[in-house]
Structure formats: structure tokens, C-alpha cells
Design a protein around this nucleic acid. Structure first.
Lengths: 143, 143
DNA sequence: TCACAGTTGAGACTAAGTCTCAATACCTTG
DNA sequence: CAAGGTATTGAGACTTAGTCTCAACTGTGA
């Protein structure tokens, strides 16, 4: 998956530098969502010597390319989720952080209806779903 | 509208203090969304001598009572929207900041479907719609 | 009117993110 | 494969958002 990120960056015409390769690997080995602070901590733990600005810059780059999506956690923190460029909504497990992608499954109809009723011209929307994933659900009921 | 906020706070069993009355008035006279920094600036402009902590505390209180909803703007900033306690989604005009409330109009079906497909137990969701309100739309087309 | 518990402002503090700048390292061209 | 221009880098200062503590104050119920 790190490879895919790097290929996509290459496509985008930016340089494939050392720090970017290392960060792509760190992102790839994380599953679920992560914050900029998480990545920063990963990088420090491995003494990669990567500056904080570099991390924010890469995240912005990845978000521009739709390689990660920025989500806002219920507690107000910002997190990132690696994703298929075509998908844009996620289910976030609040107990383990696992992510599941959500197809459109009707959201477009909702926005169209909202536009019709309100007279707004809708340019973008953001849908985030929070809950417990199947694993955490069954873990809890078995304990 | 300031009165409504204050009544609701009273119901909630908290004290109706001077700072809270003044902030309720500031919130009431703003239309659309506002950030904590906006309120802070309003308060300073009027030399109300209200501390920053007090503002954050009140916003938290109002959010707990569902008197304002916290929304995340596309640029990542946090904003607040005064709202009916029963409604929980908003249309935000990106050019003038106007807010329109959105009924459920189908979102529950979307979350139910997502839950069914993914196996997640969905606890909460967040839907934000961004676009241009009717006024801004027509203002732009006439210029 | 009193007293106490809830609330306040100041300001220190932390965390998140941005900016600048000189040094470095891609990668394209020859 | 060498060289040079340019994108990128790390350091660290800086800004902004939000939290915390604590002594002083003030609603409010009795």
C-alpha cells in the first residue's frame, strides 16, 4: 500500500524523496485512522529525523490527491484515513479506530432533496458515521 | 433568541450570570455560523471583559444542551450554529455563512443501510452540507 | 440577608498547525 | 554520469485554538 501511495505521488508530479517514502511506509502500516500527531510520534520513535512541517505538508499533499481523507472525530480532533480516491465517506469505529468505506448508498438523494427544499446550490458535503465495528461489538458482548 | 437561549440554560439548572447573558445576546445577533474566535472578538470589541475560558465554557454548555451544534468547516476550522434542539444537520453557505436547517429527509435510511452492509453498530453521525444560499446564488448570476 | 456552591477572569500552559530560511537532495538535461 | 536548477527538507520561531488552575466573585435558595 505504501507503493500505491508513492506511485500516486509520482503521477502527481512531485518528487519521491526519502522522507516521503518513509512516511508512506508508516501510513501503510497503520490501520484505521490516524492523526498528524500519531504519525509524528511514529517518526520520532524510529528516529527518522523528519520535521513536523514535513508531515503536515505530506498530509496536505495526500489530501489534495484524495489519497487520504480528512475526518473530524467526535471529540473535535482531526484525523486522516487512507482511502480509494473514489470513495468519500467512512465508518469509524470509536473503540478500535477501524475504518470501513461507505458507498454512496443514497446520500446523493439526500443532498438533492435538501437542495430542492432549501434552494441552496450544494457544492460539497461531509458525512461521517461513528460506531462500533463487528469485532468490537462481539468482543464486548462476550466479556 | 437570546431569551430562548437563556431560558434553556435556566431549565438546565445553571446560573444566569452576567457574562452568560451578554454572550447569549452576542450569539443571538450573529446570523449564521460563528467560531469561538468570532465571539471572542465581539466581546473584546465591546469591552465586556469576558475571559476566553468563559467563552469556551459557555459554548461547551450550549453544545451539551443541543442549543448550538458544532460544525467543521471545509477548511478545518470549528464553528458553531445556533439550532433547534431537535435538528442536527445544517446547510452552510460558503460565501455568506448563512445557515439552513435540514430535516432528516432520508439520512436515517442511509445510516441504516451502511450499518447493514458493514456490520457496524452506528452510534452517531455527522452530516454537513456546504454550498451557496439562494441569495448568494442570485447575487452572483446578476453581476 | 447570608452563605455556599457555581462561575468568573487572568494568565500559564499545551497542542495543533504555519511560516521562513538556509541547506539538501531529486531528477532532468546534456 | 556529472552538473545545476528547483522542489523539498529540518529547525525552530511563531500563531492560534483550547485547557487548566486558582483565588476572587456572584447568583440563588433558604
Amino acid at each position: 500500500m505504501a507503493r500505491e501511495l508513492l506511485e500516486a505521488l509520482d503521477q502527481a508530479g512531485v518528487r519521491l524523496t526519502g522522507p516521503r517514502r518513509e512516511l508512506a511506509a508508516l501510513i501503510a502500516r497503520r490501520q484505521g485512522h490516524f492523526t498528524a500527531a500519531d504519525l509524528l510520534a511514529d517518526a520520532e520513535r524510529r528516529r527518522l529525523g523528519i520535521g513536523r512541517a514535513t508531515i503536515f505538508r505530506l498530509l496536505e499533499l495526500l489530501a489534495d490527491q484524495n489519497l487520504v481523507e480528512r475526518v473530524d472525530l467526535p471529540d473535535g480532533r482531526h484525523a486522516y484515513v487512507p482511502c480509494e480516491p473514489s470513495h468519500h465517506h467512512h465508518l469509524v469505529c470509536v473503540s478500535c479506530g477501524a475504518i470501513s468505506e461507505v458507498d454512496d448508498c443514497g446520500i446523493d438523494a439526500v443532498t438533492a432533496e435538501a437542495a430542492r427544499r432549501s434552494g441552496f446550490e450544494i457544492q460539497s458535503h461531509r458525512l461521517e458515521l461513528f460506531g462500533r465495528c463487528p469485532n468490537c461489538k462481539s468482543a464486548e458482548s462476550h466479556q
